[in-house]
Simulated scan of single mutants.
Amino acid sequence: MSADQEQQSIRCLVAKVGLDGHDRGAHVIARAFRDAGFEVIYSGLHNAPDEIVQAAVQEDVNVLGISILSGAHNTLVPKIIDGLKEYDAFEDTLILVGGVVPDDDKAELKELGVAEVFGPGTPMEETIEFVRENAPER
Rank of each mutant, 00 (worst) to 15 (best):
I68Y: 06
I66C: 00
D23Y: 03
M124T: 15
L109G: 05
P136R: 06
S2C: 07
P49F: 04
G44I: 02
K79S: 13
L96C: 04
L96W: 04
A107N: 08
P136T: 06
V53M: 09
V100W: 07
L84M: 06
F130S: 03
G113T: 10
F33E: 01
D4P: 01
E126I: 07
G71Q: 11
A32Y: 11
H27L: 15
G65N: 01
L64R: 02
V28H: 02
D104E: 15
I10V: 15
C12F: 00
L76S: 04
G18N: 01
D35A: 14
N47R: 15
D88K: 13
L76E: 06
I128K: 08
E108W: 14
V57S: 05
Q7V: 08
T127F: 08
G98S: 08
D92N: 15
H27D: 13
D104R: 12
A3G: 06
G37V: 06
P78H: 04
A107F: 11
D50W: 05
N47M: 11
K106R: 15
L109N: 10
V131K: 01
D35M: 12
F130N: 06
E6N: 07
K16L: 14
V100C: 04
V101M: 03
P123Q: 09
N47L: 13
E111Y: 10
R138K: 13
G99P: 12
A135E: 07
H27T: 10
G71D: 13
A48R: 13
P49T: 08
S9M: 09
T122H: 08
F38P: 05
T122F: 04
I29P: 02
G113S: 10
L84E: 00
L76H: 05
H27Y: 10
D35N: 14
I81E: 01
A72E: 14
K79F: 11
G83E: 01
F38I: 09
T93L: 03
G65W: 00
D104F: 12
L76M: 11
D23A: 06
P49V: 09
D105H: 14
E129T: 14
L45F: 10
L112C: 04
L112M: 14
S67L: 01
D20I: 09
V117A: 11
E39A: 05
I80D: 01
V100P: 02
